[in-house]
Nucleic acid binder design. Structure first.
Lengths: 188, 188
DNA sequence: CCCGTAATGTCAGTGACTGACATCAGGGTA
DNA sequence: TACCCTGATGTCAGTCACTGACATTACGGG
């Protein structure tokens, strides 16, 4: 048994999600989150850079997962297919957290500041994917455009997956959305 | 002559851009901006919702311009072409402000909070474009995907236009980037 | 049994942002 | 002319996010 209650970070994360859900992000103070987790405000800011970051703790893991998937794609795969594989690679991880993902997304969608933070995380993801593509020999601006297009596909697919309780699984929605994007960009 | 010095908003905007450029966004207080404009902090917040918003005053105008361009596109135009026309429609407006656009972009790129705000403005733009497409009869998710792809193209083209002093004009860069996106999404 | 250390607590401070109320100069109106 | 009315600004007090400096508190090794 540790010196203190274990998993401070996790307790803060849970307390924050609960309070943001109950009373909204703006009506929750960091002091309240910390109190609910049995800690102080100062400790909150030692674990999370700011009040928003607590909801995006998993982003670096997702980013790492996707980058690995791009690197693992066969050398012969077209850039867009390597990115598609990366997006689909998130399926299992997200599938087992669908309920909490939905709750989290409701909180984020309800607040502009949180949506800003989500957007910059996705932008960071796109940058990372573009970097992985470049390491495969893809040039610019092809790498950036492919990554950005991939993120757009992911956004659309994820939104559907989260909002519709009866939707198909995420990888399938990703494939569908990519198909739509290809149809739509093809010109006439 | 009015009761007060005219164009408080414009003076605040200029003071903010100057100070953000000189000493950086984080090292500038709102009180300093207001003092430079001959006003008080409270008045700053009557004109701008927050310290970041002062740099994004023109976003609604750009959005209106693009939406109008989508609406003005011939009914026969494919969605992606209507969006391309909207992106290119910003050319003249931005061309005559290239220097200030470059200064502004340097400031934004130097600070994460400002990049967040830029991203949500672009997301708002994408939403508006998707809405305009839907009014043309484009369904979902095609409308959203087309709009998002268009914004990705714009981002890439704009970045090149701003960073390279010798680059071609923006509409040409937009056409080039769209061509690249089409090549890259085409699959094999 | 002492001591270094990592996680936490305490406290004072800065600065963004807000609400309530005061001021002040024109413009219209009696 | 005297009197409101109004819109833009000023003043002031307050909340809260976030930070730096320093104190505290058990472990766990030596």
């Amino acid at each position: 048994m540790g010196r203190w209650q274990p998993d401070s970070q996790g307790r803060l994360e849970q307390a924050a999600l609960a309070l943001y859900s109950e009373r909204g992000f703006e009506n929750t103070t960091v002091a309240e989150i910390a109190a609910r987790a049995g800690l102080t405000e100062r400790t909150f800011f030692r674990h999370f850079a700011d009040k928003r970051e607590v909801l995006f703790w998993g982003a670096p893991m997702l980013e790492g997962l996707m980058v690995s998937a791009v690197e693992a794609a066969p050398t012969t795969a077209a850039p867009i297919d390597a990115v598609a594989a990366a997006l689909e690679a998130t399926g299992p991880l997200l599938a087992e957290r669908r309920d909490s993902a939905r709750q989290r997304q409701r909180v984020i969608d309800a607040n502009t500041d949180l949506r800003e933070r989500e957007l910059i995380k996705l932008a960071s993801l796109a940058t990372a994917l573009a970097g992985a593509l470049r390491r495969r020999g893809v040039g610019e601006p092809a790498a950036t455009l492919t990554a950005e297009a991939g993120i757009a596909v992911f956004r659309v697919a994820f939104a559907r997956w989260v909002s519709d309780p009866k939707s198909r699984d995420l990888p399938q929605l990703i494939r569908d959305s990519l198909g739509e994007l290809q149809a739509v960009t093809a010109g006439r």
